[in-house]
Every structure is written in C-alpha cells, then in structure tokens.
C-alpha cells in the first residue's frame, strides 16, 4: 500500500514539473514575439525618421491674409485694354533624363515635407535663366511646377512627368523682376496641391 502511495506521489511530482516547464516555455515564446515586434516597430520608425529628416523644405511663408491698402485704379474709371494677361511660359519635358552637372551635396537639395518630392536643380538662391533645368526625384508619377515672379506672380507653369523616379524639364519664362520662387507639387483630381517644394530663386 505504501509503495503504491509513493508511486502516486512521484507521478504527481512529475506532472507538476512538466506543467512548470510548459509555463516557462510559453513565457519565453511570448517574450520572443514581443521583442520581434519591438525590433520591427523600431526599425520602421528609424527608417521613417531617416527618410523625412533630410533636406525638408523650409516652412512655407505664412499665408497673406490682407495686403496693404491699394487705391482704386484711376479712381474707378475704366478703359478697354489688351492684352490683360501675364504671359505664362511653359516647359519642355525631358521625361526623367537629368542633365549633368547636378549638385552632389544632398544638403543643397530641397525635399517636400512628405519626402515624396526632392528638387536637385536648381538649388535655393540660384540664378536661373530662360530654359533652365528643373530636375530631381519623386515617388509620384506626375508633378506640376509654377515659377513665381516677385512682381507679377506666375510667369511659367506646367506638368512634369516622373520617369523611373526622376524628373527633368527645361523651363521657359520672361521675368519682370530680379527674384522669385519655384514651386513643385502634386495635385489631386480636384486640383488640391500637396507635397509642395518651394525654392527661392533669382533671375
């Protein structure tokens, strides 16, 4: 009878050991999964930060809500005139074929806040002349650009094809002042702009 009880106790002890071992195993597996998830999340966060840290374009100029008061033209008198338009230049699309030279210093490039658009030519403050090359890389299929003159506003605009991640156009324009701004951006079906890059240029 005693022997029988001892055998039963041994079996119980073995069962308890087995149960403990099983619990430990589960704990280790759960820890491994948590570690893998942390590593993946960390890696994703690192890549995301790295991607969006570099060369982000300066914060857009605050929106103008009101200009200094302008007197009514000719005291409200009007006379038929023509032409009444600022002539828009256009661009010749090189379909992603970027010409050399191009700045090898990424710090001189300008990217959109989203990181989807990077303009490598021209660089900020560069003097641009009629026919200059606007080029860079983008993770979208189509872009638009507009060249602003500090005196009369838009003086050139057009679409840009992105081919294999690169874009390049030669921009034609006639300046009215000595400086301006180059905007490169994407638009949705409603024309709403996003992923904008703004570069101040000189004429």
């Amino acid at each position: 009878m005693l022997v029988f009880i001892e055998v039963a106790d041994k079996i119980n002890i073995m069962k308890t050991r087995n149960q403990r071992a099983s619990s430990r195993k589960r704990l280790i597996i759960a820890l491994i999964i948590i570690v893998i998830l942390f590593v993946l999340a960390g890696l994703a966060y690192y890549l995301y930060q790295k991607k969006h840290q570099t060369k982000i374009s300066p914060a857009p100029t605050p929106t103008i809500t009101q200009l200094p008061k302008q007197p009514a033209s000719n005291n409200g008198e009007k006379k038929p005139t023509t032409p009444n338009t600022v002539n828009d230049g256009t661009a010749t699309d090189n379909n992603g074929q970027i010409s050399e030279p191009i700045s090898s210093s990424p710090s001189q490039w300008t990217s959109s806040a989203s990181g989807l658009v990077t303009v490598k030519k021209p660089i900020a403050g560069e003097v641009v002349t009629n026919g200059f090359e606007l080029a860079g890389t983008a993770k979208v299929s189509k872009l638009q650009y507009r060249l602003l003159d500090n005196e009369v506003g838009v003086i050139s605009r057009g679409f840009i094809n992105v081919v294999s991640g690169n874009f390049s156009v030669n921009v034609s324009f006639s300046p009215h002042s000595k400086a301006g701004r180059l905007d490169v951006f994407t638009t949705d079906d409603n024309g709403v702009e996003s992923n904008e890059v703004q570069i101040n240029v000189r004429f």
Partner: peptide
C-alpha cells in the same frame, strides 16, 4: 494659380487676374 496655392505670394495676389500686366 490662386485657387490652388495654399500660401500665395503678394505678387500673386496683387495681380490675381493678371489684369493690366502685359508681357
């Protein structure tokens, strides 16, 4: 581009319709 420009410059606003500003 005044309808889609989020932050227009003063030059864009001053010549919003391009009126009286020939080439």
């Amino acid at each position: 581009s005044l309808i889609t420009t989020p932050n227009p410059t003063s030059s864009q606003l001053n010549y919003a319709m391009g009126y009286g500003c020939p080439d």
